[in-house]
Amino acid sequence: MSAPRSSALARRTLLAASGGLLALPALGQARFPNRPVQMVVPWGAGGGTDATARIVAAMLERRLGQPFNVVNRTGGSGVVGHSAIATAAPDGYTIGMITVEITMMHWQGLTQLNPESYTPLALMNSDPPGVQVKHDSPFQDIKALADAIKSRPAGTFKASGTGQGGIWHLALVGWLQAMGLKGDHVRWVPSNGAAPAMQELAAGGVDIVTCSVPEARAMIDAGRAKALAIMAPERNPMFASVPTLNETLGINYSVGAWRGIAAPKGLPAEVAGVLVPALKAVFDDQEFKTFMTQRGFGMIYADPQGFARFMAEGDRAMGEAMRGAGLARG
């Protein structure tokens, strides 16, 4: 760890000594990175995306010998941060964590940005939604809940988890559609994120919350809520007692809130050549694995081409789902 840092320091001193005249060509030739890198996070400090970004940044810093500073650019349902990443200079000194919202916001007409606006570097994580109910709900398993939803008239049940047209809203819509119902058979109550939605659930304000299980964990641990199922191909080892939709209802529907690292479009190949292997190494690091598992975060890796394919695929699926639910605009 000390070796790359001291050599970077030496380089910096050399650079400074060589003066302004030589600085520009020298910068071009010097191995990336030779000054601090900004990692933009479109979501607030303390949340899941922020925590993931911070550990990735800390581990990149150790590998590449330059500070990787996490910069939170929050608000606008993620538009502000995503556009800060896309519009930065493509020199590698501004990268960022992009999230599933990049495949959704442009369908809603919030921004022109889409997955094509970035140089994908690595997909790091994906969390499936869970189905949570109040601890003393009359429906103690997913089968009973699904039957009740189907048998009652539309609008009887209310669900929450995020804002209108957010990823957890689409999770609900997709699940309902997979059961042969309309997307608004369960009314969506927009909330300011998963935590307030869980509070509503505990207070008896809504019947179902479809956020990810890690986000619901605090209320579940406090004995005020219960996870009935997750919408994923397989169970989460951290919450092994929660079944999947497939094994209980025979519905093979899965969707996820993913997070990955990307840079502005037009990143030079030699810079990507430094970042991509470093990110792969971070993903394979035991420390990263331990951190993610403890938090209950799902781990999934894809290299730049795989990440691009993954996003294109997700973008198409989201477009369909949002049009189906009447959430697409423009």
């Binding site: 608000g75 538009v79 502000v80 804002g163």
Partner: peptide
């Protein structure tokens, strides 16, 4: 100002990305 809580529509932002954060 910013994304509205009912329909997720950006209000009073005049096309400015920064104003979307409110």
């Amino acid at each position: 100002v910013g994304i509205d809580p009912s329909a997720g529509f950006p209000r009073f932002t005049f096309g400015e990305v920064e104003l979307m954060q409110g």
